[in-house]
Design a protein around this nucleic acid. Structure first.
Length: 724
DNA sequence: CTAGGGTTAG
């Protein structure tokens, strides 16, 4: 083979390979590579580099690395290519190692290294590389700036600084840099600043990315309507839209809880095929899981339509299941299925599945997942993961472990404090809860709307009216947080339960938006507690209008009447409920013993050891009566208007699901072991009385988690101090 | 050879 032929071959190879890369023809590219290795063509760095690029783009990382090592005399280009592959495959150490081998790194080398850190959210590291560029005297470019800016999310000050710097360098009309700035302000919730950048870019500089970034900024910060207006404008102007646009618009529908609009948009996307994109699919799943009443069924259909699901799509499914209390088991099975088909869970997958465990009635599953997380490759000391553990342990009744994780986690943020404060509040440890909040203020960790929900509910649980009002005002005045429905309902709950029913009613009347069912429910609950029948009727009617198929208002109202001995009216409410086909959820309790969950429904006889349980319960009832227990038969649920004998009412009360579960725990666990029962409704007054006595007689610590809070019974007392 | 925008989480 003479010199001439070789050159010819080299040129052919170059042309062909370049074609393969631009046309994404990986197969032909690989064949070319095989030919190249076997042929006698002299070594070409140029060709090797492009083979590395080919594998980096379409093949595995290890193939790319092999191709790189095959390059006899690597140049900057070769290094840059392989470092880029490191960024793509999240290999920061290798990236640095390779970078240090470059004899004379150029700007691109630095830019690529910044990208490695930007992808991992390592702001500090990205900034130090950025500084190095200036120190070594290289001229930075738009890539450098956009890279370091996008890494600086989470730090407004830094973004502003870099923004100024970019303007000084004359990048005010450079789309990528401006877009990075815009997106950062957006993600930080600095919508005004984002809008300013968007406006100042002008039509000449603005591109599709700018529009997309602005839409998502609005959609993620309660400005769904503005996001939709922006999209409308894009369409009117005839601008091009892509997958990013679609996914961004979906966040707007989710933000507005506009299911109908979202569905219509979904329909339009099916025509254009956008719905088969995995990112768009995640957006759809997020929408349906959060806004549709039985959304997970729809989510499964969306999932099926996507040919190449990615990790986030799986995570979104897991998250969706975990947010529906009755579907948490499905969250766990999706988590397993995801691994079965070859995905490696990341920290977000774990956060979702841990949160599913919090809603489960078996604490041991949470512990297992904890162990799994430690064994896995995820950075399990991440704040997000630890926060999930704190929430999970406290929701599983284990405040002690929650606090231990909280105390030992290397980094804390607002959410960590929120989880711990909420944990204390739910357990009736209001003092600790409020102390921690004060500490938070001292440490200058900024509370958010969620923090105040916990703080206000802690006040409500203990009847601390003055403090509650103080914090409610602080929220608006000191932190500029507008109270939402939850905050108002906490205040109504707080005032109402403390007996200030008129004040509570006034809050509902003067709220800046239409009261929803949760506010009326809070008022109704307060009326029930204080026996204010007239106001209860008003609240119940409002509640009924808003949610005619929810059993809660009917049951509560009829209990109000029953407590006032107005039996006929109580029966009328029940009849109305039956006529409308509304069914009360049957009371159900779960208890985990030896890693097995046992379910009890009221008057349940299906448990294999029910005979034993009943025998034990009769003995227990005797002891309880001796200790002064009197069944509160007003609370016995009357299923129909038939007059029922007092004995029968007593018997029904005595077979409430939580009592059955506790009795079973008492006979099947060792003396002195603590007991945790999870219930699907709120605990009833009679059970509350009875369990207090049971805790004294048996010397056990009994914790009941109902839909509202925890009741920790110990030595005849409950942690709620009967204020609930 | 490198960039900016989308989806999940407590």
């Amino acid at each position: 083979m003479n010199q001439f032929q070789c050159t010819l071959h080299l040129q052919t190879f170059r042309t062909l390979l370049k074609q393969c890369i631009t046309q994404k023809d990986f197969l032909t590219g690989k064949t070319l590579h095989a030919f190249y290795i076997k042929s006698f063509i002299p070594h070409s760095t140029y060709l090797s580099n492009h083979f590395t690029l080919l594998y980096s783009k379409f093949g595995t990382f290890s193939n790319a690395l092999t191709a790189f090592h095959f390059t006899g005399y690597p140049n900057v280009f070769s290094y840059n290519t392989i470092i880029h592959a490191c960024a793509k495959h999240n290999l920061p150490n290798l990236a640095h190692q390779l970078f240090d081998e470059i004899p004379e790194p150029d700007v691109v080398s630095y830019n690529t290294l910044i990208a490695v850190h930007a992808r991992r959210g390592e702001c500090g590291q990205a900034v130090s590389v950025f500084k190095e560029v200036r120190e070594v005297g290289l001229v930075l470019d738009g890539f450098t700036l956009s890279g370091v800016i996008s890494a600086s999310v989470e730090d407004v000050g830094l973004v502003r600084q870099l923004h100024c710097f970019a303007l000084l360098c004359g990048y005010d009309c450079y789309a990528s840099v401006c877009n990075a700035v815009l997106a950062c302000y957006g993600r930080l919730g600095r919508l005004n600043e984002a809008w300013r950048v968007f406006r100042e870019m002008g039509e000449g500089c603005r591109d599709m990315v700018s529009w997309n970034a602005m839409i998502v900024a609005c959609g993620q910060h309660r400005e769904g309507a503005k996001a939709l207006r922006l999209f409308g404008e894009m369409e009117r102007m005839g601008l091009e839209v892509d997958m990013f646009t679609m996914a961004s618009v979906l966040t707007a529908f989710t933000c507005l809880k506009d299911l109908a609009g979202g569905m219509q948009f979904h329909g339009k996307m099916i025509k254009s095929g956008f719905h088969r994109n995995s990112h768009v699919g995640s957006g759809l799943i997020d929408l349906y899981s959060k806004c549709a009443p039985h959304g997970m069924l729809e989510c499964m259909k969306v999932f099926e339509e996507i040919p190449k699901p990615d990790l986030v799509l799986w995570n979104t499914m897991i998250s969706g299941f975990s947010q529906h209390e009755d579907l948490c088991e499905d969250a766990l099975s999706s988590f397993r299925e995801m691994q079965r088909v070859g995905f490696c869970p990341d920290d977000c997958s774990f956060v979702c599945v841990i949160s599913a465990c919090s809603n489960l009635s078996s604490p041991s599953v949470g512990k297992q997942v904890h162990a799994l997380a430690i064994k896995s490759d995820i950075p399990c000391n991440r704040v997000s993961v630890n926060n999930a553990f704190v929430a999970m342990y406290s929701k599983c009744g284990n405040l002690h472990d929650a606090r231990r994780i909280f105390d030992t986690m290397p980094e804390q943020n607002t959410v960590s404090l929120n989880s711990m404060i909420a944990g204390y509040a739910q357990h009736g440890a209001e003092i600790e809860s409020l102390q921690l909040f004060e500490l938070m203020l001292q440490e200058k960790i900024v509370p958010n709307n969620i923090t105040f929900i916990s703080v206000l509910s802690a006040c409500a649980h203990t009847g601390k009216v003055d403090e509650g009002e103080k914090y409610f005002n602080m929220m608006k005045e000191k932190f500029g947080i507008e109270p939402e429905a939850e905050h108002y309902s906490c205040m109504i709950d707080l005032l109402g339960r403390a007996g200030k029913l008129n004040k509570a009613e006034r809050i509902i009347e003067t709220m800046p938006f239409d009261p929803g069912s949760i506010e009326w429910a809070a008022l109704l609950g307060a009326c029930k507690k204080h026996g204010n029948v007239e106001l209860a009727v008003k609240a119940a009617n409002k509640f009924l209008q808003l949610e005619p198929y929810n059993a809660a208002p009917y049951v509560m109202l009829s209990n109000v009447y029953a407590s006032a001995n107005r039996w006929e009216e109580a029966a009328t409410v029940k009849r109305l409920m039956r006529e409308r086909g509304v069914k009360k959820k049957p009371g159900c309790s779960w208890i985990e013993i030896d890693k097995k969950v046992h379910v009890f429904v009221a008057e349940d006889t299906s448990h294999p050891r029910i005979k034993e349980i009943h025998t034990y319960m009769s003995e227990l009832l005797m002891k309880l009566k001796q200790a002064g227990y009197v069944a509160d038969i007003r609370l016995a649920l009357v299923k129909d208007e038939d007059v029922i004998a007092i004995e029968e009412k007593e018997r029904r009360l005595w077979h409430h699901s939580e009592k059955l579960a506790i009795a079973f725990a008492l006979i099947s666990t060792e003396e002195g072991a603590p007991i945790l029962v999870v219930k699907n409704l709120r605990i009833c007054g009679d059970c509350h009385n009875a369990i207090k006595l049971i805790s004294a007689i048996s010397g056990r610590e009994i914790t009941v988690r109902d839909t509202h809070r925890f009741h920790c019974f110990k030595e005849g007392q409950c942690s709620c101090r009967d204020y609930w």
